[in-house]
Design a protein around this nucleic acid. Structure first.
Ligand code: FES
Ligand code: FES
Lengths: 141, 141
DNA sequence: GTATACTTGACTATTTTAGTCAGGTTTATA
DNA sequence: TATAAACCTGACTAAAATAGTCAAGTATAC
């Protein structure tokens, strides 16, 4: 089980944005340089973040992106949802009554994976962007 | 972030083994049929489980596998370790002082991912095979 | 001696990931 | 108004990981 770059970069970029967000928008170019993430890839990611109203864009020279909500109101859950970073532990469709390989009952481990999924999602639900910025200020990174 | 089949099947197969484990060894063929997992794939998995002394093999006719410890003593952590199902959230090498892309400091999100990793590993550390069997007996699956 | 079942290693199709690339459009500012 | 900075979009692709398959054994109960 591992975190993909898409989710990791989305959070990393937003952490950067939240830190430098004051009056002026932050350009993807700056984020790209500071965080070492490909500009083209960032554009894909921010396109999704904008569609889900996590950031706002400002076009033209001196343009860039601004947070659309307060950092405290942006949970990791929201970020991951926006970029389609899924947490998938069960193999079956959860809503369906069928089990793993189309079997008629849920498999021996179904409940276990479901618990695991909740456990992980719980973490994402509790953390928000502000936590992240604070943590970095405290440690002076 | 998702669980791979290797880890999922390993736990599934061991749950099956733990349930039917009494005096006689359980053959992979039986597990394969009951759980709908390819026999060849199970063999790969059990080879690793055996090397890590989670199961014991009995060769020949009426052979199969037996748990090498009590179900209660087999934690999910042990199972995942055995089959190399890794939990990888950070991108950098944790021990190294370098950050994500070989940078000299850890990135803005490093601590966050590290917390997440601990959160997940904590779950695996708390669950053992006996929990799983009990859960299934209670629900009569 | 033969069928059952473990043992091992190599091989491969498919899918996912992590981007790149090309071609736009918008707008501040000189 | 020209120009460059920066957003915007969709298509494409190399590389890696995954989820197996396949082949050729060896051991042992009966
Ligand atoms: S994971 Fe849901 S039935 Fe197996
Ligand atoms: S995840 Fe460790 S430095 Fe970025």
């Amino acid at each position: 089980m591992k975190l993909t770059s898409k989710g990791r970069y989305a959070v990393m970029a937003l952490a950067d944005l939240a830190r430098f967000d004051n009056v002026n928008p932050v350009s993807l170019r700056d984020i790209s340089l500071r965080q070492g993430i490909s500009l083209d890839y960032l554009e894909q990611i921010f396109s999704k973040l904008r569609k889900k109203e996590i950031v706002q864009s400002v076009r033209g020279t001196q343009g860039g992106y601004v947070l659309n909500k307060k950092a405290k109101e942006i949970k990791l859950t929201n970020i991951f949802d926006a970029v389609d970073e899924k947490v998938k532990t069960v193999q079956c469709k959860k809503e369906s009554k069928k089990g793993c390989h189309g079997k008629s009952t849920k498999c021996l481990t179904h409940n276990l994976w479901d618990e695991l999924e909740n456990h992980i999602k719980n973490f994402f639900e509790k953390k928000n962007l502000e936590d992240l910025v604070k943590d970095n200020i405290e440690r002076r990174i």
